[in-house]
C-alpha cells in the first residue's frame, strides 16, 4: 500500500468511526441500533481494507447509510447535520475505495478534489432541501408526486445500469 493510500485509509477510518459513533452521541439513535449496524459495517470495512474480500466495502457503506437514514427517521427533531453526514458518507466511500486500489498507482489528486467538491456541493444542496422543506408550502400532493418521480427515476437508472453491463469486480 503506498503512502497516499495509507493516508486515504486513515481518513476513511476516522470518517467511518465518526459515522458510527456520532448518531448515538448526538442522541438521534439508540446504542442497540448503532451497534447492530455499525459493528458489522466496521467488520466489513476491515475485511475490505485487508483485501480478504475487497467487495465488502459496499455492504459496509450500505450499513452506514442505513444507520444515517434510521437516525434521520427516528429523530424527533430536524436533523440539521444530515447533509454533513451525507457528505461524510460520500467521503468515507471515496477514500476507502481509493485505499483499496492496487498499489503503485499515482495519487489521484483530481479524483480526490472532485470527491471533496461533490461532497461540499451535495451538503449545500442537502441544506437547501432542508430549508425548502421547512417552508410551509401548500400543494403537498404536487411535491409528493415530484418525490415519487425522483425515486422512480433513480430506480430506473439503477436498473438500466444493471442491465447495461456487469459491474466491474476489480475496480469496485
Amino acid at each position: 500500500m503506498s503512502r497516499w493510500q495509507l493516508s486515504a485509509l486513515a481518513g476513511a477510518l476516522v470518517l467511518g468511526a465518526a459515522l458510527t459513533v456520532l448518531p448515538v452521541a448526538l442522541g438521534g439513535l439508540s446504542p442497540a441500533v448503532a451497534i447492530f449496524c455499525g459493528g458489522p459495517a466496521l467488520f466489513f470495512f476491515a475485511l475490505a481494507m485487508s483485501r480478504i474480500w475487497p467487495a465488502a466495502l459496499w455492504p459496509a457503506l450500505v450499513l452506514l447509510a442505513t444507520k444515517q437514514l434510521l437516525a434521520a427517521v427516528l429523530s424527533d427533531a430536524v436533523v440539521i447535520d444530515a447533509p454533513l453526514r451525507g457528505a461524510a458518507l460520500l467521503w468515507f466511500a471515496e477514500l476507502a475505495w481509493l485505499a483499496g486500489q492496487p498499489p503503485g498507482l499515482p495519487p489521484p489528486r483530481a479524483q480526490l478534489l472532485a470527491g471533496a467538491m461533490v461532497g461540499l456541493v451535495g451538503a449545500a444542496l442537502g441544506w437547501l432541501v432542508l430549508a425548502l422543506a421547512s417552508v410551509p408550502l401548500a400543494g403537498g400532493p404536487l411535491l409528493t408526486g415530484a418525490g415519487v418521480v425522483a425515486v422512480v427515476a433513480v430506480f430506473a437508472a439503477f436498473l438500466w445500469l444493471n442491465r447495461s453491463g456487469r459491474p466491474a469486480e476489480v475496480d469496485g
Binding site: 429523530s75 444530515a82 451525507g86 458518507l89 451535495g122 432541501v129
Partner: peptide, 10 residues
C-alpha cells in the same frame, strides 16, 4: 426531508 439530505451527495 433529512433522508434526502443524507443521500444527495451520493
Amino acid at each position: 426531508p433529512e433522508a434526502v439530505a443524507v443521500v444527495v451527495p451520493l
